[in-house]
Design a protein around this nucleic acid. Structure first.
Lengths: 341, 341
DNA sequence: AATAATAATGCAAACGTTTTCATTTTGTGT
DNA sequence: ACACAAAATGAAAACGTTTGCATTATTATT
């Protein structure tokens, strides 16, 4: 006995008394089928419980209806807003998002790209601009529409949307200098295979350099992305009698750790020490003291990236690389203040 | 001129001097092809730049290699750890994850489920147990392997893995009572279409009830999931002369908002007011004061869910519903203390 | 009412794999 | 070397759609 498990397009066609071709058209070019036929098909779909098979559709080389996203990790707030905005905008354009995480391992990233291409994604979103040459050349070879999110750079191999992280670094550095600080320490994450952090650091240092402010190497601290680690790493620096008057953190989470370190040592932020972050994460405005930081508008980055990707996929013209810089903005808040003379 | 864009399995087969069937087997049952043939094929794959087409594979009704995940939102820390763990474990089993977000709209959730089924996902992960009847019955009808994450319940229509949120509520309520508090306020998110919050609240209230502690309705505050809103909502309560001595928050983010509200009103946490959360989010242990809360081990939830789903998909036996409760644990920290007499 | 133009539909050939079954090759024991 | 079993491979028929082209139904024009 030949039992077919689920209804297919032929079952629907039979029930609606049309050909499979018409059913197919009803899904893909509804304007090309008469309203009453459409209704008849609609009814048949419902009564058979038919769910179309995208795999069979994708096989024709056309639309798979999916877009791939490769991120380092989902496990922190950094990317959450970005991804959410990207995903939502994509959804609005009718795509489903395939997500893969590589844990900051760029070899793994390449593998994931291959895997997503196996699924014939119509486009790819990546984070940052640091990728293996293999990754870039695979994208080229398959002519995969792609967009790099998170940081802007005027000279990239693929389209990009993001904040100019170097600019963000400059902005916060200038702010701290403007407040009269000269004894400044940095607490940054490792910049290896992390171009965002690298660019921010570069921006900060360039401004410091221009102002002739030296940052002693022992005041350039390294931490991972965690409140706890940032707190532990910065405590010795802060308990030294000869401590800095301001600290610039690589991002807001690190800044939060630094603030806690200071507070638990009995120091007042900002009167004893100014602390600044980068990122303006959700919550940063509501810390005590509220955090001076650089707003990066990551939701706008995600949304814009999705729009660009959609354009790249659907507009057959304009296949050129697009680069969008999302403006950064200094958020002056309570955690920094003018240096007492 | 017939230009084929990309290499297909036939090109690879020709170059390797084997039949397409053998190439296919080489990918799917490598043990069934001789090592030297395998090597030859491998070489041909590389030199043609062949990337297999999962869509064509999926069409045979077998493996699509994808698993769907439907979450309310990616935009907050609540689900981040969970999803990350789920995704990683899934990856380890060779699946790629399709993610969709519905923004707490259960009608949209149903639509997303349909969309994922169109992509022929082999399994589905959902958040929570509150879903439309349509959603459940569609899962049944298509015999879709599925698992609900986040909260455990002994009586569910699909497999579930999660903390017993009611138990979490009971634990934190008991802790606060044990410290001698009687004047207790609650700050919770809306429980509509949010069974996690509902269960926690129910747990808290049941313990309060048992202890004969009444919570006046005006001490039962409602907030959304944000530090800012929690802070604003709880400020009036805290500035009243006749304020509670302890506050239980629906989750750690809300608790953080409450703490900031108290601190900016000049109140000391915990000596003036105890504040407790639920969730033990990353960072909660490092707040000042560190937050007393209930640890929910969301990474373990995600990982376990992925393992169960994999089993459900691959072990043809044992198609039964599985339910796993991940233990919850009281984390006594600095934000709560015994009521001064 | 007849004809032309247009819209709607159907037919059948793809699309790129996997898999069953048949066939060939390899290995084993004498 | 020989027969036989086991392993490796190939041929061809699926899988469930989409789409170009041919056909038929509808509408507009006179």
């Amino acid at each position: 006995m030949k039992t077919k498990k689920y209804a297919d397009i032929i079952d629907v066609a039979n029930l609606a008394n049309v050909s499979p071709a018409t059913v197919s058209r009803c899904f893909n070019h509804p304007d090309k089928v008469r309203p009453d036929t459409r209704k008849r098909i609609q009814l048949a779909v419902e009564s058979t419980g038919y769910i179309r098979n995208r795999a069979a559709q994708a096989i024709h080389g056309r639309r798979s209806g999916t877009v791939g996203l490769i991120v380092p990790t989902l496990d922190n707030a950094i990317f959450a807003t970005l991804i959410q905005a990207f995903s939502e905008q994509l959804n609005a354009s009718g795509f489903t998002m395939l997500v893969a995480t590589h844990g900051y391992d760029l070899d793994r990233e390449y593998q994931l790209l291959r895997s997503l291409l196996e699924h014939r994604v119509e486009g790819i979103g990546l984070i940052g601009l640091d990728h293996k040459d293999e990754t870039y050349s695979l994208i080229d070879r398959r002519e995969t529409r792609s967009v790099a999110m998170w940081n802007y750079h005027p000279d990239t191999r693929i389209s990009c949307v993001g904040a100019d992280n170097s600019e963000a670094g400059k902005l916060i550095a200038q702010h701290v200098l403007d407040l009269g600080h000269k004894r400044i320490a940095l607490v940054f994450p490792d910049t290896f295979e992390n171009d965002r952090a690298a660019n921010r650091l570069e921006g900060v240092l360039s401004i410091m350099n221009k102002a002739g402010v030296q940052i002693p190497p022992e005041w350039h601290l390294n931490t991972i992305y965690s409140i706890k680690n940032a707190r532990e790493v910065s405590a010795p620096l802060l308990s030294s009698p000869n401590r800095p008057t301001a600290i610039i953190a690589g991002n807001d989470v690190i800044a939060q750790g630094v603030i806690y370190a200071a507070q638990s040592l009995g120091l007042n932020v900002p009167t004893d020490i100014s602390v600044a972050g980068i990122g303006d994460f959700s919550g940063s405005a509501h810390l005590l003291p509220s955090l001076t930081t650089i707003k990066l508008r990551s939701n706008k980055v995600g949304q814009t990236a999705a729009i660009i990707l959609d354009k790249l996929i659907n507009d057959s013209e304009n296949k050129n690389i697009q680069r969008v810089a999302i403006e950064v903005e200094l958020m002056k808040r309570q955690s920094t203040c003018r240096l007492a003379i």
